[in-house]
Amino acid sequence: MANMSGLSKTERAGCTNLLKLLSKADLLSLCDTVTNKMIVVENATEATETILSFSKNAEELLRRKKVSREVIFKYLVKEGVAMSPNSEKHQMVRRTLELWSSGKAVVGESRQAETNEIRQRPSTVMASVSTDMKDEVGFDPQVLGQQFCQWFFQLINSQNPSLAQQPQDWGPQHFWPDVKLRLLSRTGSEQMEEFLGAELVNLRLLALTREERLLLSPNLEPHGLKVLASPHGLVLVAVAGTIHRDTACLGIFEQVFGLIRSPLENNSWKIKFVNLKIRGQDALGGTEVAAPALTYNSAELQLLCS
């Protein structure tokens, strides 16, 4: 078989992971398109290898009709890349190519290596972030907020079976023992739930992605993320984002985290409380949800600090 592929090693590994998100029927159809039906394959593995071999470059493959906007969005979520689900396909293609050229994509064997590394880390929130910051007198709360959100949403989304991804190390160890969760949902009717304690909070949040199969996509732009630090060591991280199931956008969320360092666990940050508001599409009245903004103002967040 003549190998016409112009894919780099990183692009090849990235395309392999992305093609795993296609149904078998779409994968075989794509193989027929790429090879002009000149090659018959017997399974998904052969189809993937053939598609990669006969793709001139990564952009050509990403622009194929069977590689839909929804598939690329799901791939970017798996890689922890924040992207508006209402972005045009060409924007998602460009973002994916940027990811691969930056070398930051977790691909192939390195994905398993990263999973193993995560499992071997201390059971505390953001060990690497706290190590960088614990000795700094004036760390930047905004940087902490950005890094926390990237860590948290990649971690919780990895529990979603629809991503077909190795779940990362989620568990009660990331919360203070007396952590409190307030969950307000407006999806048809309004419902308020409260949970107290690391085990219950951990299980309720886990159910959002593992049982309910939701994907949470945070908006980490300035209008979607606010961070406040109190003099008493509490850092508030408030973030807005969109909620999805498979290819459907179900609504928006606003989530406020209270973070406090644990001096007994290498000064790592652990979650003290979580306030989560969910609004379904029916409660939005047709409002644009591409990149939702926070409705909390600084005064309301200051009250949570007290």
Score class of each variant (00 low, 15 high):
residue 282 D to S: 15
residue 186 R to K: 09
residue 237 V to W: 00
residue 273 F to W: 02
residue 237 V to L: 00
residue 246 D to V: 15
residue 224 G to H: 07
residue 261 R to V: 05
residue 259 L to Q: 00
residue 229 A to R: 03
residue 180 K to Q: 09
residue 274 V to G: 00
residue 262 S to C: 15
residue 242 T to F: 02
residue 266 N to V: 11
residue 258 G to V: 06
residue 213 R to S: 11
residue 240 A to G: 12
residue 254 E to P: 03
residue 228 L to H: 06
residue 181 L to V: 01
residue 221 E to Y: 14
residue 216 L to Y: 10
residue 203 L to D: 08
residue 259 L to D: 02
residue 268 S to F: 07
residue 250 L to E: 03
residue 211 E to T: 15
residue 177 P to M: 02
residue 175 F to T: 03
residue 195 F to G: 03
residue 276 L to W: 01
residue 241 G to V: 10
residue 250 L to Y: 06
residue 238 A to F: 00
residue 268 S to C: 15
residue 278 I to L: 10
residue 253 F to H: 05
residue 245 R to V: 11
residue 183 L to P: 00
residue 254 E to M: 02
residue 206 L to T: 13
residue 224 G to A: 12
residue 241 G to H: 09
residue 175 F to V: 04
residue 231 P to T: 08
residue 218 P to Q: 10
residue 199 E to G: 04
residue 272 K to C: 02
residue 254 E to T: 09
residue 279 R to T: 09
residue 282 D to W: 12
residue 229 A to Q: 04
residue 249 C to K: 08
residue 260 I to M: 09
residue 227 V to K: 03
residue 241 G to F: 05
residue 202 N to S: 15
residue 207 A to R: 14
residue 282 D to N: 13
residue 283 A to P: 11
residue 252 I to V: 15
residue 257 F to H: 03
residue 200 L to F: 12
residue 189 S to V: 15
residue 201 V to T: 08
residue 262 S to E: 08
residue 221 E to Q: 15
residue 274 V to D: 01
residue 190 E to S: 13
residue 202 N to H: 13
residue 200 L to R: 14
residue 180 K to A: 03
residue 178 D to E: 11
residue 178 D to I: 11
residue 269 W to S: 04
residue 197 G to D: 03
residue 243 I to S: 06
residue 276 L to Y: 04
residue 235 V to K: 00
residue 235 V to P: 01
residue 239 V to W: 02
residue 217 S to V: 14
residue 285 G to R: 06
residue 271 I to N: 02
residue 252 I to S: 08
residue 181 L to T: 00
residue 214 L to E: 01
residue 230 S to Y: 03
residue 217 S to Y: 07
residue 186 R to A: 05
residue 202 N to P: 07
residue 192 M to S: 10
residue 263 P to F: 09
residue 281 Q to Y: 11
residue 281 Q to C: 12
residue 256 V to R: 02
residue 212 E to K: 15
residue 187 T to K: 10
residue 219 N to R: 12
residue 246 D to Y: 14
